[in-house]
Design a protein around this nucleic acid. Structure first.
Length: 891
RNA sequence: AGGCACGUACGUCAAUGGUAGACGGCUUCCCUUACAAGGAAGAGGUUGGGGGUUCGAAUCCCUCCGUGCCUACCA
C-alpha cells in the first residue's frame, strides 16, 4: 500500500465534499429513522456580495461541528443555507460598475437597473457559497434560500400587510438619519458614531429691542440658518429675563423666540442653545413640544436650500459652514471658536456624514413586539445566550430602550413596499397590485417607490425559509430551530428582531440557544477590517495549512476574543500530519486485520484495557463538551487523546505485537484492536476535521458501520455513529495501573537524560514494589517497559536491591526505581538531583502542613478535602523518607 | 458621560472557591524501521498593584492602574 509520509490537505479536500453533496448526506432526508430527534440551524445569511472572512470561517466551523456531531448522533439534521440580498451594499456595487461605463442607475431606470442587479447576482454573486464548500459546511443546498426569492418576497408582503392592518406599521413624517451619498434613510443601527476632532463655534444672536446678545455654542454653524428658537433651562437665573423675548436671527432677517425647556443643560456651552428642528433630532423633539416651525435649509444632497437664503442656495453644507462663520465674524458676532472633540454620525456603509432630515418614511411600532421578546425572556428564560454574561443583559437592556424602527429605504434593490397610492392620495396596502386595485376600486395606482430595510426580511428568516405562512412539513419539523450562531454585533440588528417576529407569527421562539462567537483580532489586537487592510483571508490559511487545521484553530476560539496567531494553525497542521502518520502506521501493519468493533469489549492486556478506557472517557467528555458549547475543551481533549494517549503510549506499547514479522493470532488481534481504536478516534475527530478523517476512514478495512438511522447509505464517516463513551468500558483500575507504568518509564527516561546516557546505550533497571499487584503490573509489562526505556534488563522485586552506584527514584504507591550505573554515575550530580526532588516534596508538604495546622481548616473545610490533604501528606512523607534513605545510601 | 468586560509563562489562550495547565517558542540530546510537520528530557508564573471576605481566592467584594467593547440626545 502506498501512503505518502506527509499529509496533503489539498488532495483530501478535493474529492470528498463533492461526493458528500452528491450523495445527499447533508439533507435531513438521509435519516431514515422516523423517531429521530431533530437538530436545526438556519445560517446567518451572508451578503450576496460578500466573500468569506475570518468571522464567517469561525461561525461556519462551529455550526458545522455541531451539525456534523448531531448528525452522527442520529439526529435528523438540517443546516439551512442561504444569502441575503443586502440592499445597500449590492446596489452600491452595481452602481459602481455602472459608473465605470459612465452611467448612473437613473440612466437605466428602475426596472433595467434591478434587472442588472439580478444579472450581477447570477454572474458574480454568491462567491461565498463556493467558499463554504471549501470550509466543508454540511449545509443542505437543496433548501438554499435567497431573501429576494419569490416565495420569501411573498412572506415579506404578507407580514407587511398584517402589521399594517394591525396598525403596527405606519407612515409618518419624522426626522431621520439621511445618507446624502446613498440617498436613503438609515435606521439608528446602520449609523456609526465616530469620534472626531472638531470645533465649537460661539455665535452671538442680537436681542430685539435691546443692545443685548445671547451667545449660543454650536458644532454646526450652517444650521443656524434654520434656527427657529433659542432655548434656555427654565431654572437658569442668568436667562430668566430673556425667556419670551425675541431674537433677530442674523443673516436671515427672521425673528425667533427665546424659550425655556428642561432639556437644556445650563452647565454646557453658554447655557443657551440654538434650536434647529429640521436638522437635529433633539431640536426636532423640542420643536414639537413648543410648536416651532421647521425651516428646512439643507436638502437631501446636503446642499443648502432656497430657505437658507439666496447667498447660500445650492452651496455645500461645509462651504456654507465657512461662510456663516465668516459672515458672523464680519458682523462682529463671532464670539470665539474653540477646539472640541465630539462624535459624528456616519453611514455605516459609505462613511458619509449623516444629515438628519425631516422626511416621510414607513415605521414599525416596536413596543408590542418588544414586550413579546421580553416576556419570553422573563417567563421562559429564552433564548439562552451562550455565554450568558454579558449577552443576556445586553439583549434585554437594548429591548427595554427600543424605539420605533424606520423600515423604508430609498433604494431600488430590495422588497418594494406593498403600498399603492390612488390619484386622490389614499394609501392602499395589499399583498399584490391586483389586490390593491380591488381594494382601491381603481387601477390608477402608483406603488410606493421605496423598498424595505434589508433586515426586515432577515428578521423573518427562521420561518420564511421553512415555508411559512403555509403549514409545511419543514416548518412543523424544523421550527423552532436549535441554535443560532452569530457574532455579537448583530444581536440588535438581527437576533432580537428574529425573536420578536418569531413570537409574533409563530408564537414560539425561533431558536432555543444563541451562541455568540468571539472576535478574531489581528496580531496587534485590532479588529480586522477592509479599510484597515489588516484582515487575514481564511482561504489563504486553508491553502497554507489545510482546512482541517484551520477549523481546529477556529473551533477552540469559541466565544473568546482571540488575536490571530498563525503558529497555532501550524501546530494543528502538525497534528493533522500526526493523525495521518498514525493511520499510516496502522495501515502499513494491517495485513490480516480489519476494523472489528466487538474486539474492544474483549481486551485483557493492560494497555488494551487502558486505551479502550481512555477512548470511552474521551468520547464521553467530548459529547458533554460539544453539547455545552465548550469547544476549546473539546479540541484539547481530542488533541491530547490522539497525540498523547493513542500515539505516544498506545501505539508504542502495542508496537512489538503489531510489527511482529511472523503472522500470529497475537499479531492479528493487536492489529485489529489498533485499527478499531483508530476508526473510533477518526469518528470522534470528524466534526472538527472532516476531510482528513474521511480520507483515512475510507482506507480502513473492515466493519465500519453507519449509524442505524443511515442504514443503506453509501459508507462515509459522516454517517457513522459518534461514539458515546460506554461507561462499562471505562476502567479506572486499568487507568491507574497504566499510570504507574507511565510514571516508571518517565522516571527512567528522566534519569537517562540527566545522567547523559547515550540514547543508544542499553542499561539495566531495577524496580521494587511492596504491593503485589503493582509488582505484577510491572512484571507483565516488562517487555514494553524495556522497549520504551531501552533497558537491557528489567528486574522486578519486592524490595530494592541494587548496587550503590545507581541512580534512584521513588515512585507512587511505595514503588522504587534504581538504574545501576557502574562507571557512569557521577555521585555528586546524583545527590544534587535527588536533593532537588526532596526539596520539591518538602515545599509541597510544607504548604499542606500549614493548611492542616490551621484549626479552622480542619473544622470548616469538607471532610473529604481534609482527608485528601492528610493522605497526600502521608504519601509525601513516605516518598520523602525513601528518598532520604536513597541519598544516605549513596556511596 | 454612563454601562459591561478583560488583565494568568516569552507569545496565544485554559482552569465548578480546593496542588495554576495546554499549544507554540526556548535549552539539551536523538535522522530509534508511522511521523524531523518527529522522538526524549528540561527551564519558565507570589495569576496587573493594593486591600477585604473565606478554613482556602486566578476565581467573590472594594480600590487603583492598564486595555478593549457597547450604549448615549450634551448643543
Amino acid at each position: 500500500m502506498e501512503i505518502p509520509k506527509q499529509y496533503d490537505p489539498k488532495e483530501a479536500e478535493q474529492h470528498h465534499y463533492e461526493r458528500w453533496e452528491r450523495n445527499g448526506y447533508f439533507a435531513p432526508e438521509i435519516n431514515k429513522d422516523p423517531g429521530a430527534p431533530v437538530f436545526t440551524i438556519v445560517i446567518p445569511p451572508p451578503n450576496v456580495t460578500g466573500s468569506l472572512h475570518m468571522g464567517h470561517a469561525l461561525q461556519h466551523t462551529l455550526m458545522d461541528v455541531m451539525t456534523r456531531h448531531k448528525r452522527m448522533c442520529g439526529y435528523r439534521t438540517l443546516w439551512l443555507p442561504g444569502m441575503d440580498h443586502a440592499g445597500i451594499s449590492t446596489q452600491l456595487m452595481v452602481s459602481r460598475a455602472l459608473k465605470k461605463e459612465g452611467k448612473t442607475r437613473h440612466d437605466l431606470g428602475r426596472e433595467k437597473f434591478v434587472e442588472r442587479v439580478w444579472q450581477w447576482k447570477r454572474e458574480s454573486g454568491g462567491q461565498i457559497t463556493v467558499q463554504m464548500r471549501r470550509v466543508g459546511d454540511s449545509v443542505d443546498w437543496s433548501r438554499e434560500k435567497f431573501t429576494m426569492d419569490e416565495d420569501l418576497s411573498r412572506v415579506v408582503r404578507e407580514v407587511f400587510v398584517r402589521f399594517y392592518e394591525e396598525g403596527l406599521i405606519y407612515r409618518g413624517n419624522r426626522i431621520v438619519n439621511w445618507c446624502p451619498q446613498d440617498q436613503t434613510v438609515l435606521s439608528d443601527l446602520e449609523v456609526e458614531k465616530l469620534p472626531q476632532a472638531g470645533k465649537l463655534y460661539y455665535l452671538q444672536y442680537p436681542i430685539k429691542n435691546s443692545d443685548g446678545r445671547v451667545t449660543v455654542a454650536t458644532t454646526r454653524p450652517e444650521t443656524m440658518l434654520g434656527d427657529t428658537a433659542v432655548a434656555v433651562n427654565p431654572t437658569d437665573d442668568r436667562f430668566r429675563e430673556l425667556v419670551g423675548q425675541t431674537i433677530m436671527l442674523p443673516l436671515t432677517g427672521r425673528e425667533i423666540p427665546i424659550i425655556a425647556d428642561e432639556y437644556v443643560d445650563p452647565e454646557f456651552g453658554t447655557g443657551a442653545v440654538k434650536i434647529t428642528p429640521a436638522h437635529d433630532p433633539n431640536d426636532y423633539e423640542m420643536g414639537l413640544r413648543h410648536n416651532l416651525p421647521q425651516v428646512i435649509v439643507i436638502d437631501s444632497h446636503a446642499k443648502m436650500t432656497a430657505d437658507a437664503g439666496a447667498d447660500f442656495l445650492g452651496m455645500d453644507r461645509y462651504k456654507a459652514r465657512e461662510k456663516v462663520v465668516d459672515d458672523f465674524a464680519a458682523l462682529g458676532l463671532l464670539d470665539k471658536v474653540v477646539d472640541y472633540d465630539f462624535s459624528i454620525s456616519k453611514c455605516e456603509r459609505c462613511k458619509t456624514v449623516i444629515e438628519p432630515l425631516i422626511s416621510t418614511q414607513w415605521f414599525m411600532k416596536m413596543d408590542p413586539l418588544r414586550d413579546l421578546a421580553l416576556d419570553l425572556m422573563s417567563r421562559e428564560d429564552k433564548p439562552k445566550f451562550v455565554p450568558e454574561t454579558p449577552y443576556k443583559k445586553v439583549y434585554t437592556d437594548w429591548l427595554e430602550n427600543l424605539r420605533d424602527w424606520t423600515i423604508s429605504r430609498q433604494l431600488w434593490w430590495g422588497h418594494q413596499i406593498p403600498a399603492w397610492y390612488t390619484p386622490g392620495g389614499d394609501v392602499i396596502v395589499a399583498r399584490s397590485e391586483e389586490e390593491a386595485r380591488i381594494k382601491a376600486g381603481t387601477s390608477e395606482l402608483t406603488q410606493d417607490p421605496d423598498v424595505l430595510d434589508t433586515w426586515f426580511s432577515s428578521a423573518l428568516w427562521p420561518f420564511s425559509t421553512l415555508g411559512w405562512p403555509a403549514d409545511t412539513d419543514d416548518l412543523r419539523t424544523f421550527y423552532p430551530t436549535s441554535v443560532l450562531v452569530t457574532a455579537r454585533d448583530i444581536i440588535f440588528l438581527w437576533v432580537s428582531r428574529m425573536v420578536m417576529m418569531g413570537m409574533k407569527f409563530m408564537g414560539k421562539e425561533p431558536f432555543a440557544d444563541v451562541f455568540i462567537t468571539g472576535t478574531i483580532l489581528d496580531a496587534q489586537g485590532q479588529r480586522m477590517s477592509k479599510t484597515k487592510m489588516n484582515g487575514v483571508d481564511p482561504i489563504d490559511v486553508f491553502d497554507k495549512f489545510g482546512v482541517d487545521a484551520t477549523r481546529l484553530t477556529l473551533a477552540q476560539v469559541g466565544s473568546t476574543d482571540t488575536r490571530w496567531n498563525e503558529k497555532q494553525v501550524e501546530s494543528y497542521r502538525n497534528f493533522a500530519n500526526k493523525i495521518w502518520n498514525a493511520a499510516r502506521f496502522c495501515l502499513l501493519n494491517s495485513e490480516g486485520a480489519e476494523v472489528k468493533p466487538e474486539i474492544l469489549e474483549q481486551s485483557t492486556a493492560l494497555h488494551d484495557r487502558w486505551i479502550v478506557s481512555r477512548l470511552n472517557k474521551t468520547a464521553r467528555d467530548l459529547n458533554a463538551a460539544i453539547n455545552a458549547y465548550e469547544f476549546h475543551g473539546a479540541v484539547q481533549t481530542l488533541y491530547h487523546f490522539f497525540w498523547d494517549d493513542f500515539c505516544d503510549w498506545y501505539i508504542e506499547l502495542a508496537k512489538a505485537d503489531v510489527t511482529a514479522e511472523q503472522p500470529s493470532d497475537v499479531r492479528t488481534e493487536a492489529r485489529t484492536r489498533l485499527l478499531t481504536v483508530l476508526e473510533q478516534a477518526l469518528r470522534l475527530l470528524h466534526p472538527f476535521m472532516p476531510y482528513i478523517t474521511e480520507e483515512l476512514w475510507q482506507r480502513l478495512p473492515g466493519d465500519k458501520r453507519l449509524h442505524q438511522a443511515y442504514q443503506g447509505a453509501e459508507p462515509t464517516v459522516m454517517l457513522a455513529a459518534y461514539p458515546e463513551g460506554a461507561s462499562s468500558l471505562i476502567d479506572e483500575a486499568a487507568e491507574s495501573e497504566m499510570q504507574a507504568i507511565i510514571e516508571l518509564i518517565s522516571r527512567v527516561r528522566n534519569i537517562r537524560s540527566e545522567m547523559n546516557i547515550k540514547p543508544g546505550e542499553r542499561i539495566p533497571i531495577v524496580v521494587a514494589a511492596p504491593d503485589e499487584n503493582l509488582r505484577k503490573v510491572f512484571s507483565t509489562a516488562r517487555e514494553q517497559i524495556s522497549r520504551l526505556v531501552r533497558a537491557s534488563e528489567v528486574a522486578v522485586a519486592e524490595r530494592l536491591e541494587a548496587p550503590k552506584a545507581s541512580a534512584r527514584a521513588v515512585l507512587s504507591g511505595g514503588a522504587e526505581l534504581a538504574v545501576p550505573l557502574e562507571g557512569l554515575i557521577d555521585f555528586e550530580q546524583e545527590r544534587r538531583r535527588l536533593q532537588r526532588e526532596q526539596e520539591k516534596l518538602q515545599a509541597e508538604a510544607a504548604k499542606l502542613e500549614a493548611q492542616l495546622s490551621n484549626p479552622n481548616f480542619v473544622s470548616r473545610a469538607p471532610v473529604e478535602r481534609v482527608n485528601e490533604v492528610r493522605e497526600r501528606i502521608a504519601a509525601i512523607a513516605q516518598q520523602s523518607s525513601q528518598l532520604q534513605q536513597t541519598v544516605e545510601n549513596l556511596q
